[in-house]
């Protein structure tokens, strides 16, 4: 599965926006089988922790479906 690195910058319910290292924002929805809960998204956005999102393309939407979110080590920040 594809992965994307970045920081969560917006959260609404189980949807979130991931801003990648190039400053481009991408829209994600948590999969029902995702190894993360909607309640965990907001703390990640507040802390601006770097994350790696493993995802699949969404069905009939311009957005991705997150299958897994891993918190990455902070690098030179």
């Amino acid at each position: 599965m594809a992965t994307m690195d970045g920081r969560i910058t917006l959260v609404q319910e189980s949807r979130f926006q991931l801003t990648d290292e190039a400053g481009v924002s991408h829209l994600f929805t948590l999969s029902p089988w995702c190894a993360a809960e909607p309640a965990q998204l907001r703390p990640l956005a507040h802390s601006q922790a770097p994350v790696r999102v493993t995802y699949k393309a969404g069905v009939d939407v311009i957005g991705q479906v997150a299958q897994r979110i891993d918190v990455q080590a902070e690098a030179g920040r």
Partner: peptide, 8 residues
């Protein structure tokens, strides 16, 4: 609401 565009 951070909703994606749909019905492409």
């Amino acid at each position: 609401n951070n909703l994606p565009a749909d019905h492409i």
